[in-house]
Design a protein around this nucleic acid. Sequence first.
DNA 1: TCAATAGTGTCTTTAAGACAATATATA
DNA 2: TATATATTGTCTTAAAGACACTATTGA
Lengths: 212, 212
Amino acid sequence: MDVALFTLLPEEGLAIVLGTRDRDPFAGRPALFGGFLRPGSDGSATDAAHRLLAEKAGLADVFVEQLMTFSGPDRDPRGWSVSIAYYALVPFGRLAEARPGLAVWPVGRMPPLAFDHDRIAAAALARLGGKASYSTLPAFLLPKTFTLPELKAVYEAVLGTALNDSAFRRKVMEMRILEEVPEKRGATAGVRRPAQLWRLAADRLVEFDRTV
Amino acid sequence: MDVALFTLLPEEGLAIVLGTRDRDPFAGRPALFGGFLRPGSDGSATDAAHRLLAEKAGLADVFVEQLMTFSGPDRDPRGWSVSIAYYALVPFGRLAEARPGLAVWPVGRMPPLAFDHDRIAAAALARLGGKASYSTLPAFLLPKTFTLPELKAVYEAVLGTALNDSAFRRKVMEMRILEEVPEKRGATAGVRRPAQLWRLAADRLVEFDRTV
DNA sequence: TCAATAGTGTCTTTAAGACAATATATA
DNA sequence: TATATATTGTCTTAAAGACACTATTGA
C-alpha cells in the first residue's frame, strides 16, 4: 500500500509530504508512505493506511480516502506488484507533531519519486482537484476551525483557480455545510476586521449537488 | 477481483448481469464475475477484468473501469481477503453473444448476492449515478450509434431523474462530444419522424466541466 | 391528411459573477 | 480617525427550464 499525504503551505499552497526510502530499490529517494497490508491485524485497507501514516509519518487521526489500486510488472523493479493507494490530507500546523525528517514539496515542483509514486501522486492530485469543487474535501487541509477567507483560499489552492467571493459565501451558506463557532479570529495581529470562525457541520466528507 | 456488469433493458432500465457461483462458499448463488489476478500473464488489474469478463461472461471489448478495492476479514467466510472491484457496461444487444445462463436483474430488485457482492454492486451503482452527470459514461450502455432521444433516455435511467429535453440537446451539442452519422434511424417501424444517428466523438470516457 | 415522435425557438426563471457599499477590529 | 480586511447588498450576465411551435415520416 502507498499513501500520498498532502498539506497546505501558508505561502506556497498545496504541497506533498514525503518520506525517504530506507532500503533498495530506490534507497534514499523521496517516496510516498508505503508498506504492506497486515491481513491479520489490519481491519481493512483503510485501517492499514492509518497505521502506515502513524508508523511512517508519526500522524494519527488524519483524513484518508482510497484513491485506486495500481498494478503491473513495471511499477517495482523486483517484478509484478499491486498497491492499494490512498491519499491523505493534514493541516499544516499538525506537521509540528509529525516525525522529523519528512520532506515537504509544493506540488508544482515535486522531485522524482521512488517506484511509480510520481504517477500515484499525479492521480491523487487529479482526484483532489476533481472532487474539491463538489465536496468539503479541501476543508480537511485546514484546522478544525477556520474563517471563510481561509476556506475560500484553500478551495482556490486545490482547484488552481480564483473563485468569486460573494458567490462563494452565498453557496457555502446555502449548502449549510458549516456551523458558526462563537469566536472571531483576532490571532493574526493587525489593523483589520477580524473574521468569524466556522467549523464543518459534519465530521466526514460531504458531497454537494452543485459546485463551489 | 470482481466485476459488476451493467446493461440497459429496453423496458426496465438499468440492470445488472450476474453469473452463478459454481462452488462453495455460496455455491449456486448469483454473483459478480470474480476470479484471481494472474500476476504473470495479466498485464494489469484492468487486463484481468477484461479476461474475467471474457472467461465468465463470454464478452470481449467491454467498457470497464476500476471501482475500488474492498478488503477485510468479513467479506469471505474463509477469512481475510482483498478484492479489486471493477464495473463494466455493455449494450443490451450484445448480450446475445454472451455466455448462456447469465441472469439479468433490474437494479431495483437484485437478489442477494454471494460474498459482499451486494455492497460492491451498490458502490458501483453509486459511482455510475455520480459520474453520469458529468461524463459520457451512460453512452457505453448504448450501441456505437444512437439517437439523441436514446441518449437522453439512458442518462435518465442512470441518473434516476428526468432531464429537460431542449436543454439536454443544447448542452450535448455545445460540448461537442458527438459526431453525426450520415444516417437516420428508420429501423423502428412506425408512423413517426426518424431520428438522426450519432456516435461518440471519442472512443474513451470523456468528462465534462458541467452537467447534462 | 393524421398520428406520433424528432427537433427548434423563445420566453421565464434561477444561479453565478461583478463590484460598490458597509462593518469592525487596532494603531 | 485611518487602515485593512471582512461581510453584505444589488445590479448584470449567463445558464437552465418550460413549453409552444415546426419538421418529417408512413399509413
